[in-house]
Nucleic acid binder design. Structure first.
Length: 427
RNA sequence: GUGGAUGUAGCUCAGUAGGUUAGAGCACCUGAUUGUGGUUCAGGGGGUCGAGGGUUCAAAUCCCUUCAUCCACCCCA
């Protein structure tokens, strides 16, 4: 049996690394200049952190999809299925409510869900996360959404669809769920089996059923947005107004739905068509009761998460070119046994300034130049007995084929100007 | 949890009315080329045909089971 990565996991190979760096660099820049600070939390947390966050609605399904285990000390630990709960746990544990408010925190890293895999869905996946904790005004909602849009744009995505809605305050949600139950009860027999179950557990979910019959039944009904209370309505209008002022294009989605109870008011999602059935790049919303629910002070918050794998899918679909891996400036070739050691020494000196590689063994010029070529280096530097007699090396510019003898002690000086232009022929 | 498709060399894939030593391209190694790379040419290494069982004189090929991958359903914090 050949070794194999666990189902739903994958290796990020060297050629894939530059796009990951590009992503984290962009996140750091875009969110950082808005005052968001990077926070790294553990990948494992006490299971109760997530259990409390999910709440009693804890839809058994959700629970089942968490990787929970017992460590040797008998502690119940969970591989985080998302980043928000851990961030808020840190917020509470570290007393961040005493920090200048609001506290803006971003995080990025792996998360785990025991789901069946498909395109854009893995068991170990990665998220970029932003939380703005301690602000309850519409301005915070608008800024959170705007920052997500900024990030997507700076990454190079142009054709995303940003849907914004409101799930209202808890009373509004209860009222809407009751309305849906009443409205659909007479037609229950015509609902799909899945939606009959939804009607019992979480009526709002019927709204995003993929069944055509369900959709026909639901079409004439009012949406959550239609039954907002005055406060939630005013808040939502203010959010939209800010976004309009800032030129952020959004689609108002009157039927936007959240699975968990702690969400209130603003909810949003960003989608990208063309990356399969899992078209949501990410989403977020306001969670004013959550910090308290986790055992902290009663502070409001809003946040979002983006799925890294889906971002990469979308970037590929959009044809965005990402940086390539770094190539050496010089590749050192040892033409005899003595030169092997000399080149290793030379490499260590040059690496103070340049990206320098060598092959550890004696090579004839044919093989040595082939190695240099494959490394992607700009220059090959060769040394054998002929060069040793002159205390020098041969420097060959691989693209042009031009080559020149250089005294060893002058090599760094000759490379330095080329280093900045990388392609300059040796002078 | 459910359904469909697919598992053959490091990679992408041919190869089924069951029939000798299982092939190609790319990649890798060697040589042409013992002081000059990319191109080219010649040669070479590399396979439990995903795994286990069954049918058969004979299985990559047919049957069963199982595992994995992909896509979709479900679900989606």
């Amino acid at each position: 049996m050949r070794p194999q990565a666990p189902k739903g996991t994958y290796d990020v190979l060297p050629d894939d690394q530059p796009r990951w760096r590009h992503l984290t660099d962009t996140v750091r820049r875009v969110l950082g200049r808005a005052g968001a600070q990077e926070l790294t939390t553990p990948i494992i947390e006490h299971a109760e952190v997530f259990e409390k966050a999910v709440g009693d609605a804890a839809d058994l399904v959700v629970q089942k999809e968490m990787y929970t285990f017992e460590d040797r000390g008998g502690r119940r630990l969970t591989l985080r299925p998302e980043l928000t709960a851990g961030v808020l746990r840190a917020f509470i544990e570290r007393g961040m409510h005493t920090w200048p408010s609001p506290v803006k925190l971003w995080s990025a890293g792996p998360a785990f869900r025991a789901e069946n895999v498909q395109r854009g869905r893995y068991r170990q996946f990665h998220q970029v996360n932003l939380e703005i904790v301690g602000a309850d005004g519409a301005l915070a909602d608008a800024e959170a959404i705007a920052l997500m849009a900024d990030l997507l744009r700076e990454l190079g995505l142009r054709t995303t669809v940003l849907k914004v809605g409101s799930v209202g305050d808890p009373d509004d949600r209860a009222r809407y769920n009751a309305y849906l139950r009443d409205a659909l009860a007479p037609h229950e027999a015509r609902l799909s089996p899945a939606s009959r179950e939804r009607l019992r557990l979480n009526p709002m979910r019927v709204l995003d059923s993929k069944d055509d019959g369900d959709q026909a039944l639901v079409a004439p009904l009012q949406r959550p947005l239609d039954l907002l209370g005055d406060d939630a309505r005013a808040h939502f209008d203010a959010v939209l107004s800010h976004l309009r002022d800032w030129g952020i294009d959004v689609d108002v989605d009157p039927a936007i739905v959240r699975g968990l109870d702690y969400y209130r008011r603003t909810a949003f999602e960003v989608h990208y068509t063309g990356i399969g059935a899992q078209s949501a790049l990410g989403g977020g919303g306001r969670y004013d009761g959550l910090v308290r629910q986790l055992g902290g002070p009663d502070v409001p918050g809003i946040g979002w998460a983006l799925g890294v794998e889906r971002l990469f899918d979308a970037l590929a679909e959009e044809g965005v070119t990402l940086p390539e891996r770094g190539r050496p400036l010089v590749y050192l070739v040892a033409l005899d046994e003595i030169a092997v050691g000399e080149m290793a020494d030379l490499a260590r000196r040059l690496r103070g300034e340049f990206h320098v590689e060598h092959g550890y063994v004696k090579r004839n010029p044919t093989k040595g130049l082939r190695d240099a070529d494959r490394s992607g280096a700009t220059y090959a530097v060769l040394r054998g007995d002929r060069e040793r007699r002159a205390d020098g090396v041969v420097v060959k510019h691989l693209a042009s084929g031009d080559q020149v003898d250089v005294a060893t002690e002058l090599l760094a000086d000759r490379l330095r100007p080329a280093h900045t232009t990388q392609n300059a022929a040796i002078r």
